[in-house]
Simulated assay, not measured.
Amino acid sequence: MTNRDPADGPRRRIIEATIELLESGGPDAVSTRAVAAAAGMQPPAIYRNFGDKDGLLEAVAEYGYAQFLEDKRARLDLTPEDPVEELRRGWDMTVEFGVKRPELFAVMNRAAGEGADAAHRAGLEILHGRVRRLAAGGWLRVDEELAAQIIQATGQGAVITWNATPAERRDPALLTILRESMVAAVTRAEPTISAAESGPAPAARALRAALTDDADVLSEAEHLLLREWLTRLAADGGAPRA
Rank of each mutant, 00 (worst) to 15 (best):
E86V: 00
A164W: 06
S198F: 12
R133A: 13
E228M: 06
A118M: 11
N163M: 14
A118F: 07
G138V: 11
L218D: 00
P102Q: 11
A148S: 15
D117K: 14
A106S: 14
L211P: 01
A204N: 07
A112H: 12
A215K: 00
W139N: 03
D143E: 15
M108T: 04
V99Q: 04
A118N: 13
H120R: 15
A184L: 05
E228R: 14
E197M: 08
G137F: 14
G115E: 06
G138L: 12
H120P: 00
A203W: 09
A164P: 07
A148Q: 07
E103V: 06
E228N: 05
L87C: 13
R205Q: 08
A206H: 05
A135M: 10
D143V: 01
I151F: 00
I126V: 15
G113W: 07
V107W: 11
A173S: 11
A111P: 09
A147M: 11
K100A: 13
A189E: 09
R141N: 10
G129F: 11
R227D: 12
R133V: 03
R121N: 05
D216A: 14
S219Q: 02
E144L: 12
R208D: 14
L218I: 00
L207P: 02
P191F: 09
R169G: 03
G157T: 06
T176G: 08
D82Q: 05
L87D: 07
R141G: 10
R208V: 01
A164T: 06
D82G: 02
E96H: 14
N163P: 08
T94I: 11
